[in-house]
Design a protein around this nucleic acid. Structure first.
Lengths: 163, 163
DNA sequence: CGTCTTGCGTTGGTGGGACCAACAGTCTAC
DNA sequence: GTAGACTGTTGGTCCCACCAACGCAAGACG
């Protein structure tokens, strides 16, 4: 038997374990979140800040609850995010004259610039994440994941859903 | 304009947000972990229990550190898992006569039966997770995710790595 | 032999993320 | 006008991955 040149004992995960989709997903998500998180943290930002800024840019001004539904960020967590963005001047938070319960969140010019910066970082992170995949494979992966997302509705749990 | 039969205002996430791979991954992982977690919890089990049992079945007896490396479960978390499995009689934990630092973990007949049961649940969960995908798509998704896993080594962070 | 480094199992703790419960204020529909 | 639903906010829970440090044992090397 050819003596393996690698002196490494190498304790790999069993094949059957490595082939489980939910495990693969978890692993990939861990890497992805790290990649994204590190880059955004270097800029003093968070996943959520980016999501909110992008949503405002794409869908226009909205209430906090509206933003919460569109981004998937929980109502209660949204507060801190908007505090940060407000303090940084990326966003204005005005009481809605038409409905005094709500705040109207509006993207400022500063916010738009910040979004551009963060967007570059996000794209950079995606690129590193998907490095081993060619463009066609990246598109296919995105397609398959989108199919999963569409099938299992935006939120299965008891999250505030209509009747 | 055809009055949409759905009276819903429907506040969807912006397209650009929905197309970000790291976000899609996170969403899918959330669903997957829920699906798996619920099923295993109904049996009083955990993700980790399954991973350890399967690893023992595939790779034979091992030390706790060995199991930790193969499963990706942290050394410190492994303790509780093995306590559970030991208490349930799924596993024996004997001091290694050849190296008194280690424990040799061995799968029992009970453990093997439990593994079969949990394996069925896991497969069930994967099936529900991948419901919207046909067999070819499932294989492709697994392949792409495996490519990601292989590229970004088993563990990027400062986890116990050789020099 | 002694020292020094490395690995092992174990304990307790940290930080982040998703989520829930409850509340006061406000709107909407009956 | 009263009941029910929605909004923003606070404070807390639970789970997960991870770290720090310890006591002990083994291997390497003078």
């Amino acid at each position: 038997m050819s003596p393996s040149p690698t002196p490494a004992p190498e304790e790999p995960a069993p094949a059957r374990l490595r082939a489980i989709p939910s495990r693969l997903l978890a692993g990939a998500t861990l890497v992805a979140d790290r990649l994204v998180g590190e880059r955004l943290a270097a800029e003093g930002a968070h996943k959520w800040h980016f999501a909110v800024l992008l949503t405002l840019a794409e869908a226009g001004p909205a209430s906090q609850a509206g933003l919460s539904r569109r981004t998937g960020i929980h109502r209660s967590d949204m507060v801190a995010v908007l505090n940060d963005l407000g303090d940084a001047g990326c966003v204005r938070r005005d009481p809605d004259p038409a409905d005094r319960r709500r705040n109207v969140i509006t993207l400022t010019a500063t916010g738009r610039r910040r979004l551009e910066r963060l967007d570059a970082l996000i794209r950079e992170a995606q690129d590193e994440l998907l490095a081993p995949l060619d463009p066609a494979e990246r598109a296919e992966l995105t397609r398959l994941l989108t199919a999963l997302a569409d099938h299992h509705g935006p939120a299965h749990p008891g999250q505030d859903e209509e009747s």
